[in-house]
Design a protein around this nucleic acid. Structure first.
Lengths: 246, 246
DNA sequence: AGCTCATGTGAACGACTTTTACATGAGCCG
DNA sequence: CGGCTCATGTAAAAGTCGTTCACATGAGCT
């Protein structure tokens, strides 16, 4: 039954017209199904209804397709983090945690992108555009950390924002990689990955001396009035950041 | 020049004698070089001086070889964590951090194992033995967290040990994955991965109310004498957990 | 109408995975 | 010691991929 290919071609003519995009979409689907390792250039071509050689008109090789996807992934990632951060509204801590949740949500909702970005084993510094995209995404976390660091309670040494950003990133990435994806999520947890990360971040922030019982701060002037309980020990949410056993 | 194979065979006879082990070693080397994705069954066979079909006498397929390596990796991992934990000597917090360092050290010293264990994309629950080995390794962290939780300062709600273990694991894994390996380590950091993780854990523990200025505790009876500054805010090490900018 | 160049095709090469039928020889049994 | 057997190895073959090359097609410009 090789009339299928003829059929396809009859429908769309000799030239595909939008092969590059079609290949990206096909690859995305395949990676979601079988992982970046299992994804095959030939399969993507087949799925787009073209010969195995056609993709080479649009990508130097399989790796370039993969890294294109990773790049696109970082762009969407950045967009989602940006939107989650929402410039620190309604208050910095709340927004900060929303960023953490967005990280997990992305890993969950876009397994193909996440896979290509973090688990495909392709060298980040191979493609400068890829590296730049990754950099921009991280800068969201960094900017958020910067704002948070500026809020550090007086009396304690101010934590380096870069360090905070790296810490938060590692937490989110660790939770996402270990517990929030595919089969690794099979490990039975006492709480959801989201809750796990939220508690982790809250405890961490408390360790830095931040008040972690979130209450809407005045959105007009954020830095100025640091709540009085900032440097005291009373900022503990009832029941601790891990909440009550439900 | 195909006399090489004949040569090899002349040296060792028709039967290899220890092929399984030789294949595991060869694979380990190849994975270290080119990653689990780039590693090839045929290459391992070649390296062991046997035909491409020979490995199938010892492993059902490529994946089984990979998962054997992962399993062996988890065993060594467990051994190193156990030794680092050293049953909580000289004091729980110190030992706990040593475990974190051991995690990073393993990722650094045994990239092939680490790769097979965490980055090869093979389903953890495929092989029950693999799953068990992974479980045992995690249990070290869990046991350590248990001991640490028991030390929680009075007056604050006691954190669930399981949660702590998962948090620590995710931190260590996040730092290792993002910053402590191969090319991803290319990202220029303000501090070493070890320091990064140490600071992260210290801040986290402080967030839980633990005293984090380590001083040798009496090794005889550990739980009893919680230092007085446990629940106050004065447990901040000079300069904070991130130390002084050197 | 005709040219040109981007885009797609088919065939071919070498490498890899896996299966199959056959070869070898180590260890046991009489 | 002679012979049997079975674990272990080999060669060959089929099927898949990645990748390249010479060639085909037709969209868009002149």
């Amino acid at each position: 039954m090789s009339w299928r290919k003829e059929q396809r071609r009859a429908e769309r003519g000799y030239h595909h017209g939008n092969l590059k995009e079609a290949l990206l979409q096909a690859a995305l689907g395949l990676i979601a199904e079988k992982g970046a390792a299992g994804f095959t250039f030939a399969d993507a071509a087949r799925m787009a209804g073209v010969s195995a050689a056609a993709p080479y008109r649009h990508f130097r090789d399989r790796d370039e397709l993969l890294s294109s996807i990773a790049q696109r992934g970082f762009e969407q990632f950045e967009a989602r983090l940006t939107s989650a951060w929402d410039d620190g509204r309604p208050d910095t801590v709340t927004a900060f945690e929303r960023v953490g949740k967005a990280y997990l949500a992305f890993a969950r909702d876009e397994p193909a992108f996440y896979n290509a970005m973090f688990e495909s084993g392709l060298p980040v510094d191979a493609n400068p555009a890829l590296q730049a995209a990754s950099e921009r995404a991280f800068n969201i976390i960094r900017a958020a950390a910067e704002r948070l660091a500026a809020l550090a309670p007086p009396g304690t040494p101010r934590p380096p924002a870069m360090m905070m950003a790296l810490h938060i990133w590692s937490m989110a990435h660790g939770v996402a990689s270990l517990f929030s994806r595919g089969d690794a999520a099979r490990r039975k947890l006492p709480m959801s990955p989201d809750e796990l990360l939220e508690a982790e971040v809250l405890i961490y922030l408390r360790g830095l001396g931040f008040p972690t019982d979130r209450r809407p701060q005045k959105k007009s002037a954020e830095p100025p009035p640091v709540p009085p309980e900032a440097s005291s020990g009373s900022g503990v949410p009832p029941g601790g950041p891990w909440g009550k056993p439900k």
